[in-house]
Amino acid sequence: MFSPHGPSLRELCVQALSSVERGYDLLAPKFDHTPFRTPQSILDATVEALSTLGPFDRGLDVCCGTGAGMRVLGALCHGQITGVDFSTGMLARARDQHPEASWVRADARALPFDEDFDLVVTFGALGHFLPAERPALFDGMYRALRPGGLLAFPIGAPPSPLSVSHWAALGFDLAMRVRNTVWRPPFVMYYRTTPLVAVRDDLTVAGFTVRAVPLTALGRRRDGSPGFQLVLARKPIDEP
């Protein structure tokens, strides 16, 4: 799963016993050599799905990490692109790789933006927020968008209960719950706390008009349903 340039088992253990912020600061120099980085196939499929929904001027990647999402924003946005993350280490890596972008260090649950962007994206970050924290996250994204702006992010279909992936995700989440019960500071990262139905409900409460489109380029499951969908949450032009 990891390239020879990725973190060692010891480094992963140290990260897992740290806070989320400190853990990602430690992992940042080798993050791009881990399976945690958003695959290029997902980024490409997102660009393809969004290419007919613009034009977009300014774009924001929330929980940008080392900046993989900048490739999406750079392909779609004509104006300034910005990444926001609370890990200093991840932002330093992102800045080195994408000097054309601007960077902001902030907690995603308290985003410091007010109608600054036409497009907001996020990749692989929702598992870092407990269900009770999602309203603050989505409220901040809503505020960050101009009227008519779009929030977009891919979300995977839950794996079949008969699959190895299902049991691996279940085991990981259980291990993290035990870890966070007995160890402080907590490290919040769960794979099974962001079902599409719950996420759609939270986005609707935040004020978005929500739909999801299949990312067919990423394949389908055995029952014919898409393996990934792109959530499209639009901020109304005329707010209530």
Rank of each mutant, 00 (worst) to 15 (best):
Y191S: 11
V104S: 08
V84Y: 03
F129C: 01
Q97F: 09
S51Y: 07
G54W: 04
F56P: 03
L53M: 10
V104C: 14
G149T: 03
R146M: 11
S163T: 10
R211G: 12
F138I: 06
R143T: 09
A175T: 12
H98W: 11
H78F: 05
A28E: 08
R192H: 09
V164P: 08
P35G: 05
E100V: 04
I155A: 07
F138W: 12
V14D: 05
R143C: 06
H166G: 02
S102Q: 11
S102G: 13
T34Q: 13
Q80D: 13
R37T: 05
G124Q: 00
D201R: 13
T66L: 12
V199C: 01
R220F: 14
D116V: 12
T122D: 09
W183R: 13
I155R: 06
A101T: 09
G23K: 02
L50Q: 00
L203N: 04
Q80H: 09
G6Y: 02
A101H: 06
D61T: 07
S18R: 13
F117Q: 01
F187I: 00
Y190H: 08
S102L: 08
G127A: 12
G171Y: 06
D57T: 12
S160M: 04
G67C: 01
W103K: 14
G79W: 07
P55N: 02
V84K: 06
V84W: 00
R37P: 02
F187Q: 04
S225H: 13
D201N: 10
T194F: 01
P35E: 05
D202I: 00
P159M: 03
S51G: 14
R184I: 04
R10D: 14
F117W: 08
K235S: 09
R184F: 15
V72M: 05
D57N: 13
